[in-house]
């Protein structure tokens, strides 16, 4: 992996002349976790898709830049709420999908390490259909890591999981993605409070930065600071500035 850069998105987006989000500036600090929190339809997924250079259906007027001046879109790895595992391919083949799609060889040692660190060694030959939701999301995380990109974009990656599996996945993701520039798009204030080195709340009115607790991520779910931050975030989402 090359050194993780910081990223800035600056601009506005509209769909057929109707404004999707007002002019905003979102900066991701290099090597840190930035949470973009918002309700449905405020355009938070559009922000992520713009960074990944994926089609959005919106007209974006602005620019996306990296602190090192290089291109952003070809240095990202992407993980969505839907694990996007190919049901016909084994766990190992799903993890090495990127290399296979580019016609490259992959590093077998790295595959072994990732299988081991994601607790998937026993499942490497299984098909996704034989796995639980949490296991499938671990495969998706391993696939994301196999890409070894400095920028990681996560689109509500854990929202389909039950509460305890989600907390375990958050811990694992923070451990394995350390040193990379990560953006998480989420609608879950609890997730933002646990994971964000920086937290931005996105509402139709614009983007508001909220100061996260001082504890290191992943923050304890039961810590008072985390809970306070969570309730503060929820209030902002509901439009009641605290």
């Amino acid at each position: 992996m090359t050194l993780a850069p910081g990223i800035t998105l600056q601009g506005q987006a509209s769909i057929e002349g109707r404004q999707l989000f007002a002019p905003l500036t979102l900066s991701l600090d290099a090597g840190r976790w930035t949470c973009l929190l918002g309700g449905s339809g405020v355009g938070k997924t559009t922000v992520l898709r713009l960074m990944a250079d994926l089609s959005t259906g919106a007209d974006f007027d602005g620019e996306i830049t990296a602190t090192d001046g290089e291109l952003v879109a070809d240095r990202i790895a992407y993980m969505a709420q839907d694990d996007l595992l190919m049901p016909w391919a084994s766990v190992a083949k799903n993890i090495t999908l990127g290399a296979r799609l580019r016609g490259q060889d992959w590093d077998e040692t790295r595959l072994e390490q990732l299988l081991q660190r994601c607790g998937l060694l026993a499942h490497r030959h299984k098909k996704p259909g034989e796995l639980s939701g949490g296991q499938r999301q671990r495969v998706a995380l391993a696939r994301t890591l196999m890409e070894d990109k400095p920028i990681i974009l996560l689109d509500e990656p854990f929202s389909a999981l039950d509460a305890q599996t989600r907390a375990a996945m958050q811990d694992l993701a923070v451990e394995l993605l350390s040193g990379r520039t990560v953006m998480v798009v989420t609608h879950d204030p609890g997730e933002a409070a646990r994971l964000g080195h920086a937290i931005h709340v996105m509402t139709p009115a614009g983007l508001t930065a909220v100061t996260p607790p001082t504890a290191e991520v992943p923050r304890a779910v039961e810590a008072l600071d985390t809970l306070m931050c969570q309730s503060e975030l929820l209030k902002r989402l509901m439009g009641q500035a605290a």
Binding site: I76, G98, R100, E147
Partner: peptide, 22 residues
């Protein structure tokens, strides 16, 4: 499924490989 194609795009996949692998 469009999600597969998004994923393939972020992986800089080649079109013919997307065809045969996905």
């Amino acid at each position: 499924p469009p999600g597969y194609l998004d994923l393939a795009k972020t992986m800089q996949a080649k079109p013919m490989r997307i065809l045969w692998q996905i």
